[in-house]
């Protein structure tokens, strides 16, 4: 049994210190995930706080043999963000600020990054989220799929299609 499994086991028995040790390293990734989904740091932090409380309350219900905390917690965060996004207030008022080009952006154009940025911005929300989970948070296909409610195989297929749409000439094997 590794450290994480031992901490999960202790947390299931109600050890808050163990739960905090599990949670600590994933608060920042969770905040970033929530920001990607909600577009607002304040709202993202609120969502992560709520998800952390829900996770703590639900820890006792974790299945025996659950060995990884990260995908489970990020799933709770993603569900909380979806729930907030469904709120009427969010749908009516939360409109992302258009990003203003900076000097760095201008320089990026030469490297073709601005094209990539535009292409990513044009993707649908779930495809963007999948890229973020896999490439930024380094989640495996299985873990990213779990956050999105997909099987690992489905996540991999969707990732392949998304990357193909982003840069058709790329050798995808190197990216995947």
């Amino acid at each position: 049994m590794d450290d994480e499994q031992r901490l999960i086991s202790l947390a299931r028995e109600g050890d808050n210190g163990a739960f905090q040790s599990l949670l600590g390293p994933y608060v920042e990734p969770a905040c970033k995930l929530a920001f990607v989904m909600l577009g607002d740091w304040q709202e993202a932090e609120d969502a992560v706080q709520e998800a952390a409380l829900k996770s703590w309350r639900a820890t006792k219900k974790l299945r025996e043999g659950t060995s990884r905390f990260r995908p489970w917690f990020l799933t709770v965060v993603a569900n909380e963000c979806r729930s907030r996004r469904r709120g009427r207030w969010f749908r009516t008022l939360r409109v992302a600020e258009p990003r203003i080009a900076t000097q760095a952006d201008v320089a990026d154009v030469a490297a073709g990054r601005a094209d990539l940025e535009r292409a990513v911005a044009a993707l649908d929300r779930s495809a963007r989220l999948l890229l973020f989970l896999h490439f930024y948070l380094d989640l495996s296909h299985e873990e990213a799929g779990r956050v999105l409610g997909l099987s690992g195989a489905a996540a991999k297929t969707r990732l392949y299609r998304t990357l193909r749409a982003l840069r058709p000439e790329l050798e995808l094997e190197t990216a995947l």
Partner: peptide, 23 residues
């Protein structure tokens, strides 16, 4: 990875502490 890094930045200072304290 770099694109997300540029777009997202870092959470507000103290976010981790506040989340852990709430739990």
């Amino acid at each position: 990875r770099q694109l997300f890094e540029r777009e997202i930045g870092a959470p507000p200072p103290g976010a981790r502490q506040r989340v852990l304290a709430s739990v």
